[in-house]
């Protein structure tokens, strides 16, 4: 179960790509329980997830840039400084940050094959995520009541789109976490359980780092 031998850990330098070779016999490895070996020795699923997250960087980059371009363009409606509730948002940011910790604990539990702990930490992570989403719904409602609709001005359209996209990502994450918990309970999962937990963890942490940026650029730096 060791990931890297100590020697390999020291080798930090870039290995030429064509040296990342190849030996797997795709067809006789059906006994290992680890899926079959790949040309690079890396898991297909993790590679796909990292690629997806690399792609997501450009998605959120575009939404953040749109917001940055339009943040000060307020022709009507309240200004952000009048409606932002920094203490409230700070608390929900903290909640999301801590959910990353509980996600790490879920992953380590899964790697130890400790199903009870895994389920517990998955549930707590999902609850923290749901708290964050609930906070966002509350915040949006408050802003709306104070006169900041989706269509009010450029700031509001780009603000709601950016934070709303993030909120949808968190919601999808919560659904995945709860589903995974249920699937583990029912023992219905079809792959390597620890890896599935890790993959969803990667997605979850990514959603967290996007919020780290949003919290600073949108809330803490006044428009």
């Amino acid at each position: 179960m060791t990931h890297r031998c100590p020697v390999a850990k020291k080798r930090k330098s870039w290995r030429p790509l064509d040296d990342v070779a190849v030996l797997a016999n795709h067809d006789t490895g059906h006994d290992t329980g680890h899926g079959h070996s790949t040309s690079t020795g890396l898991s297909n699923n993790k590679m796909a997830m990292w690629l997806f997250l690399g792609s997501e960087c450009l998605l959120f980059g575009g939404l953040i840039s749109t917001y940055m371009l339009y943040r000060g363009r307020i022709t009507q409606g309240p200004r952000p400084s009048q409606i932002f509730d920094i203490p409230f948002t700070s608390v929900s940011s903290f909640v999301l940050l801590m959910s990353s910790l509980t996600m790490v604990l879920a992953v380590t539990s899964a790697q130890r094959k400790d199903n009870e702990r895994t389920k517990l930490w998955l549930t707590i992570t999902a609850l923290l995520g749901a708290t964050f989403v609930g906070g966002q719904v509350y915040e949006f409602t408050a802003f709306y009541n104070e006169g900041l609709g989706f269509t009010t001005n450029l700031f509001s359209s780009s603000f709601y789109t950016l934070t709303g996209f993030h909120g949808v990502h968190v919601t999808v994450g919560v659904i995945m976490l709860l589903s995974l918990r249920g699937i583990i309970s029912a023992n219905k999962d079809t792959g390597d359980r620890a890896e599935v937990v890790e993959l969803i963890g990667l997605y979850w942490h990514f959603v967290d780092i996007v919020w780290i940026i949003i919290f600073t650029l949108v809330y803490l730096i006044p428009a």
């Binding site: 179960m1 060791t2 990931h3 890297r4 031998c5 390999a8 990342v20 070779a21 190849v22 030996l23 797997a24 290992t32 680890h34 070996s37 690079t40 020795g41 890396l42 898991s43 790490v104 604990l105 992953v107 380590t108 790697q111 620890a194 890896e195 890790e198």
Partner: peptide
């Protein structure tokens, strides 16, 4: 090749809690 293979076929130990 074998070396690369063995390194990554199994799971990372992860951070300690």
């Amino acid at each position: 090749a074998t070396d690369t293979h063995e390194q990554h076929d199994s799971h990372a130990p992860g951070l300690s809690d």
